[in-house]
Amino acid sequence: MTERQIRLFGDPVLKTVSDPITLTDDVTGLVEDLVETVKVPGRAGVAAPQIGVNQRAFSYNVDGEVGYIINPVIADLSGEPELMDEGCLSVPGFYFPRLRYPNARVTGQDLQGNPIELSGTGVMAQALQHETDHLNGKLYIDGLEKDVKREAMRLIRESDWF
């Protein structure tokens, strides 16, 4: 297992829709690296594109629970969307208010191809939506309100890492 470097905003892999993983793919190493990378304190989730891999998998680390899911699909979003401060490892140092559903459920597979389901509220719901967005080639800043996005883009362009 290896902690992998996080790709930053501007890297084309972050704007690319990820390929589904087939049961014949050997993705054990990918999953191990995703889990190791998300264990760094302060991380709630890491999607495969964030470590440069264009495949549909992500790991999560919420409330002490660490895990992964392969080929996740949003199965249910419920509740009234709420503005939540949100950040991203690929857009380091920034948090912006973003609308997210307070309840989320995703379905997918484990390494053996068995069906799994993840669900949650609060931070877990936010992470499930955020990481699934990554697999669809979307960053959280794409969903910001127009004026907030304009300011976010200005701040990102002025950052020392951009």
Rank of each mutant, 00 (worst) to 15 (best):
M1S: 12
T2K: 10
T2D: 11
E3M: 15
R4A: 12
R4W: 05
Q5N: 06
R7Y: 15
L8S: 10
F9I: 14
G10S: 08
D11C: 04
P12Y: 02
V13F: 11
V13M: 11
K15T: 15
K15S: 14
K15P: 05
T16G: 09
T16C: 09
P20F: 10
P20I: 00
I21P: 00
I21D: 06
L23T: 13
L23A: 11
L23S: 15
T24H: 15
T24A: 09
D25C: 12
D25V: 05
G29L: 07
V31G: 09
E32T: 03
E32I: 03
D33M: 03
L34E: 06
L34Y: 08
V35Q: 12
E36D: 15
T37C: 09
V38G: 07
K39W: 00
A44P: 00
A44F: 13
V46R: 10
A47I: 06
A48R: 01
P49T: 02
Q50Y: 07
Q50L: 06
N54M: 02
A57F: 04
A57C: 06
S59H: 06
Y60R: 04
Y60K: 01
V62K: 05
V62M: 06
D63A: 05
E65Y: 09
E65R: 13
G67T: 03
Y68H: 09
Y68I: 08
I70G: 10
V73F: 14
V73D: 02
A75F: 12
A75Y: 07
S78A: 15
G79I: 05
G79A: 00
E80W: 11
L83V: 10
M84Q: 10
M84N: 08
M84T: 13
D85P: 15
G87F: 08
G87L: 05
P92R: 04
P92Q: 01
G93K: 11
G93Y: 07
Y95M: 15
P97F: 00
R98M: 02
L99D: 09
L99P: 05
P102Q: 08
P102M: 08
A104G: 07
A104V: 10
R105M: 10
R105Y: 01
V106C: 04
Q109S: 09
L111H: 08
P115F: 02
L118M: 05
T121A: 14
G122K: 02
M124S: 02
Q126S: 06
Q126P: 04
A127H: 02
Q129N: 02
Q129R: 03
T132R: 05
T132Y: 07
H134T: 04
H134L: 04
L135R: 00
L135P: 06
N136G: 07
G137R: 10
I141F: 05
D142T: 12
K146V: 10
K146M: 12
R150T: 14
E151W: 08
A152Q: 13
A152C: 14
M153T: 11
R154S: 11
L155F: 13
I156R: 02
I156W: 14
R157Y: 14
R157W: 14
S159M: 05
D160R: 10
W161Y: 15
F162C: 07
